[in-house]
Amino acid sequence: MNTTAETRPVVLQIEGLTKYFGGLRAVYNFDLTLYDGDLVGLIGPNGAGKTTIFNQITGLYLPTSGSIKFNGIELVGFEPHEITRLGIARTFQNIRLFGNLTVLDNLRIALHSQAGYSLFDGILMTRKYRQREAEILERAQELLEIMGLTKVQNELARNLPYGEQRRVEIARALACSPRLLLLDEPAAGMNPKEITQLMDLIHFIRDKFKLTVLLIEHQMRLVMGICEQITVIDFGEIIARGTPKEIQNNPRVIEAYLGKGA
């Protein structure tokens, strides 16, 4: 990373992360440090282990070894929903919205951990329940407005066009009130115009919500365009790290992407 001393606080610190599936080594000795407000890209060929890293950060997989610290808290061992509640939200490579529910409900589900009323409040419809529900609705609609999705709030998520589904997924992740946002191939399947919009959007939400963003991407234009730092992995190991410019000219990266002899 930067050799200059960093003054911003560390948000995420991954050290020696390793994951085996049976005999298959998916991730080996992966390190990463994210400072507050970073916008960092994680790239690599298909099957390099990027999503596996995400799944370990969010607790879906238990690492074979290594440590993941978020704001100084060791995440290994927490359940996925607890990690989300600590302030890490993510989107999925293949969009995983709750397709049969409305866009609004998708967001309200993400706000569940902040609902702040008990089951009995809900069943008896107490004053607290009504108050909190109104707040949840307000917050969800606010987010939808920010993402320009107000008009589709009552549509079923599966009926939306692809680009809007992506935006809903980001909105839903934001509803978790994260400090760290993990985006898994947000630009997959988008055309150049949409990618430009997405780049603006990512910048915008990072500044507006004071987020740290880590993203996996295949679209080089997006990664090179917005990331300040890029980490390249292949076969689960880091092969390069640096600014977009450094990465573009790194022979090992070119080899990993295009194969030997290219």
Partner: peptide, 16 residues
């Protein structure tokens, strides 16, 4: 309901 729709996504949204 979110558990019915997609367990993995529900977990990622902070649902136990």
């Amino acid at each position: 309901i979110s558990v019915r729709e997609d367990e993995v996504a529900a977990r990622a949204m902070g649902i136990d």
